[in-house]
Structure formats: structure tokens, C-alpha cells
């Protein structure tokens, strides 16, 4: 090999060990999972003993009503919680982006739910929703109102898991939104104020558009997370009543442990993975697009400034 060839190969040589570790640690398990989707595999068998069934697991899932129901529940859940969390989280950030006494204390309090282990969150809310001793129903009864069947009615149970998730994860959006707000160029805001923009105009026309790249990434991160949520729902409702809160990750876990169908569970995981992959790609392309647009704007601004001078 020539000197130049060797020099060109050097970086790849240095990268090789890391690449090898990535391949083994990251790709191998994924490949294993994808391979398992083609098997009729129960957990009492070793993977080698499982029968190869081609696409049967996928075909089964596509006509399985329970899977479809749980898919719809998952999409509905993710859309509603992320929507609600975005509105509340960003709203709170806009409200609290100012100098108030004891602000750092409040900020810490606001992000506390996020730090609690999900199983504990589940147990806590399960107690609060308890039909007779839970604080919610006791309060309702004390006010002379009808108690609410928080977890024992399909629609209420769905609302209850949404409330718990919004409670836990709004702070995530809140801190990211607050960080984004605080890094906005003050000059733009000052200019807007001097031009007489009202508070609302500042929010709609200046703050939100400038925060948009951060918000979109935050939203996609939350969406990915919401598609995979398991513990809180497991503890709160275990998917019930009926299948009203049986989210995909819960169905995957039940398929593997209760139904003992590892192949079908793998196929479901794979579909979930593909969906999340699509979301991640969307996030990636949005970031690229936003960057390109920002660069173009900067160029236009620079050109305008140059022309003005």
C-alpha cells in the first residue's frame, strides 16, 4: 500500500474497534429480534428449536383485532398526551420566564414529577383514583358531587392514565421550553417591544417561531417516549377495563409472558420500532430543513445589511 493509501486508511483503522463494538452491542440484538419475528417461538424453547414460519406472525397481527385496538389506543394516547403536555409545558415556560422571587425554587418543584420512578407514579395515582378512599372521590363526595369511576370505566380509565402521564411529563417540556426561551436573542424581543408589539404579539410572532426548532425536537422525543410507556399504565389499569388502556408496549409484554408467543411479541416490537424509526427520521429531516432555512434567512439578512450599508 502506498503511503497515501495508508494515511487515508488510518482514520478508519482507529474507528474500527468502536464500529465493531457498535455492531455487536447495537445491531446484533436488533437483528436477533428481527429474526425472532419469523419464528414460532415459545419461551420454553431455545431459539434454535423454534419453528421458522416466515411472515405468519405479521399476517396474524394484521388481522388480530386486539392488536389493532391496542394500536389505536397507543396512537390516541400518544397524540393526546403529547398535545396536552406541549400546550401546558410551553404555556408554563412563557409564564415563568421572568424574574420572580424564589423562581429557582419553583422551577425545581415543577420538575419533580419527572424524577419519580414510573412504578411509584403508578402506585401513587392508583391510590388517588381509588373509588372510596382516594382523595379525588372523597373531595367530590365532600362537595356533594357524584364520585367518578376513575379506573373502572373505559373512557374514564383512558382519561386517568392521560392525566397521570401529563402530570409526570409536562415538566420535561417545561424545562426544555424554558431553556429555549432564555436563549432567545434579547435584541429581537427588545426591538419588538420598541415597535410596540403587545405581549401576545411577542409570543406568537417572535418567541414561538424562534423556539420552534427546539419545540419540534422536544415534541418528537416525547412522542417516541409516549409510544413506549409501560409501567404507569401497567400499575394503574393493567390495560383494562376491557382493552381500553392496553397500550402496545403492554400488549407486547403480555404476549411474551402471558401468551408465551415470543415470535408475535417480537413482530409487534418490530412494528413499533419501525414506527418510531419513521418518527426519528421525521425529526432528523425537520432539523436539517430548519437549519437550511435559518442559514438562508441569515444569508438574506446579511445581504440586506450589506445593501443597506
Amino acid at each position: 500500500m502506498s503511503m497515501r493509501g495508508a494515511a487515508r486508511a488510518t482514520p478508519y483503522l482507529f474507528l474500527a474497534p468502536a464500529a465493531a463494538i457498535m455492531a455487536v452491542a447495537l445491531l446484533y440484538p436488533v437483528a436477533y429480534m428481527v429474526y425472532a419475528t419469523f419464528l414460532d417461538w415459545n419461551p420454553s424453547q431455545r431459539i434454535g428449536e423454534a419453528e421458522f414460519v416466515g411472515l405468519r406472525n405479521y399476517a396474524f397481527l394484521l388481522q388480530d383485532e386486539s392488536f389493532r385496538e391496542s394500536f389505536v389506543v397507543t396512537v390516541k394516547f400518544a397524540a393526546i398526551v403529547v398535545g396536552a403536555e406541549m400546550v401546558i409545558g410551553v404555556g408554563l415556560a412563557l409564564l415563568l420566564d421572568r424574574r420572580i422571587r424564589g423562581m429557582s425554587f419553583f422551577r425545581t418543584v415543577f420538575i419533580m414529577p419527572m424524577m419519580i420512578a414510573p412504578i411509584v407514579v403508578g402506585i401513587m395515582w392508583r391510590y388517588m383514583y381509588h373509588p372510596s378512599v382516594g382523595p379525588f372521590n372523597r373531595l367530590l363526595k365532600a362537595l356533594g358531587l357524584e364520585p367518578v369511576p376513575w379506573l373502572s370505566d373505559g373512557s374514564w380509565a383512558f382519561a386517568s392514565v392521560i392525566i397521570a402521564d401529563v402530570w409526570q411529563w409536562t415538566p420535561f417540556i417545561f424545562i426544555l421550553a424554558l431553556a429555549a426561551l432564555q436563549s432567545l436573542p434579547r435584541s429581537a424581543l427588545e426591538a419588538a417591544r420598541m415597535d410596540g408589539a403587545s405581549e401576545w404579539q411577542q409570543i406568537w410572532l417572535i418567541k414561538l417561531p424562534l423556539m420552534a426548532p427546539v419545540l419540534v425536537v422536544t415534541m418528537l422525543l416525547r412522542l417516541i417516549d409516549a409510544f413506549k410507556v409501560l409501567e404507569v399504565i401497567l400499575v394503574l389499569t393493567n390495560g383494562g377495563p376491557g382493552l381500553s388502556t392496553e397500550i402496545l408496549s403492554l400488549r407486547i409484554s403480555r404476549t411474551a409472558s402471558e401468551f408465551r408467543e415470543l415470535g408475535v411479541a417480537a413482530a409487534m416490537s418490530n412494528l413499533l420500532l419501525l414506527m418510531l424509526l419513521a418518527l426519528t427520521l421525521a425529526m432528523f429531516f425537520y432539523a436539517k430543513f430548519a437549519e437550511a432555512r435559518a442559514q438562508k434567512q441569515r444569508r438574506v439578512a446579511a445581504a440586506a445589511a450589506a445593501a443597506g450599508a
Partner: peptide, 21 residues
């Protein structure tokens, strides 16, 4: 029987629908 887990789960969710929905 080995497939009972699956039947059991289906029975249990269907009955839950009877009880709550």
C-alpha cells in the same frame, strides 16, 4: 393446556367489557 394463557387473557378482557362497558 399450553395455549390457556392466551384464551384466559381474551376471556378476561371480554368479561371486563361486560362488567364495565
Amino acid at each position: 393446556i399450553p395455549v390457556w394463557g392466551k384464551i384466559n387473557a381474551d376471556l378476561g378482557t371480554s368479561l371486563s367489557k361486560v362488567l364495565t362497558e
